[in-house]
Design a protein around this nucleic acid. Sequence first.
RNA 1: CGGGGUGUAGCGCAGUCCGGUAGCGCACUACGUUCGGGACGUAGGGGUCGGAAGUUCGAAUCUUCUCACCCCGACCA
Length: 501
Amino acid sequence: MLNNKLYFIYMAKVLTSRAENYAQWYNDLVIKADLAENSAVRGCMVIKPYGYAIWEKMQRALDDMFKETGHQNAYFPLFIPKSFFSKEAAHVEGFAKECAVVTHYRLMNDPDGKGVVVDPDAKLEEELIVRPTSETIIWNTYRNWIQSYRDLPIKINQWANVVRWEMRTRLFLRTAEFLWQEGHTAHATKQEALEETETMLKVYAKFAEEWMAMPVVQGYKTESERFAGALETMTIEALMQDGKALQSGTSHFLGQNFAKAFDVTFTNQEGKIESVWATSWGVSTRLMGALVMSHSDDNGLVLPPKLAPIQVVIVPIYKKLEELDQINGVADKIVAELKQLGISVKYDNDDKRKPGWKFAEYELKGVPLRLAIGPRDLQNGTCELARRDTLTKEIVPLEGIGSKAVSLLADIQSNIFKKALDFREANTTVVDDYEEFKKLLDDKGGFFLCHWDGSAETEERVKNETKATIRCIPLEGPTEPGKCMVTGKPSARRVLFARSY
RNA sequence: CGGGGUGUAGCGCAGUCCGGUAGCGCACUACGUUCGGGACGUAGGGGUCGGAAGUUCGAAUCUUCUCACCCCGACCA
């Protein structure tokens, strides 16, 4: 009676398949799985409760990691005086084209009686920018907080929304307003700031791999891909199932650029005045998109147990309400046992939905484990356990169901990571010939490890000719020197190319 | 921001060419039978046809303007 694995019979498809149209599959899934939807405001989304629950779990895990590495949370204003933006030249350059600007502070009734209009007399002295990122307001504030090396380091994070006026938006991947965290740290030495930059990249990589079950390549951005105003940008890059890369988190070494722009200096131990060294780092709700595209299949979401709002769902199967009563008794005990073990469990005994409907629904929503109890199980002291990642089911005894669930959840977490890692390895190609690179980019996609001569011209040429960009100069991986695949000039090491989101 | 497409019931669509007062499937409500992979029957309810203006006796349908969304580019996390 045990271990009789059955395979699923699929009923009506509600999703476009990945093979048919990957982009449509993603859009369908985000909406059908109740993660988010488009709002009445152009380019802005509504994150729905189920999607937000996942984000909250991400926040919790990241926030704990930030605290463990010595950071504190704070909050800075949504609005930034326009003049702040013009202080750091590269920074302005990077963000000027996508800023929302507040020009007035009052509405009035339309003199023509057609609703309300902006009161022309209520023009702001200085216009306010809705933050696209907070370096300027934060460094303007840090100036007042820092006098001596004794005031350093300052290691602050804020959870906030930011606005970047994007032309073309996609749920989670690119929206005009999004949620994120931005860390902003101030240090006495260059070395310490560099270490902070790397530490936080490692935090992101650890989070991506251990919580999201999403393998990432860590590395440095090339100069042209760097954050506006940064001396060095580090990134974690993930590979999506359609063979495109997704930049999933960045950590920037800002040097003394912002300190100089905002005149943030400190007196060192020798009594000399120096500029402060800075970092900033962030991940956003874009991670939700990464999560969806890393593991999910044509039946719906596949969530890593560590981030799943519901880890186990219990579905009763019954004909008569007396049977349901009996099952309720058994299920309540299972719920108590699982909760005891720290598992988030939902017992769905809603009489208005049928088992088949519930199966499909929770599969669509990516619940890692489903436990079904019917009349046969009541007799045998068993239940049916179905795992979302492999789509397999087995009949198991109720005795010891708690530890069984714990080990299965752990197994699912590691299995989907392994699956994603295998996919990435199968889709990472070492190429030395530019023509072959172009061909494989179209035929196969994925990551490419190639030699590059280090020039922005070559990088630009590859981008124009193939739409592929250098995702990063990896921290790990092959480091043997060679010849640039495009120009044949010497190359210190291979870099990671891909088409990206 | 350029090119293309789509807006008709909560969702997915037909009807638009050729103007005559709106229909189908799912969902919803009630009852009954069902319930181990999105059940079935019977009877119901629901629509400013994206918005505005115009042509006309009459507009979902024709004209102009406008808004939103989707796809492809340019830009970006």
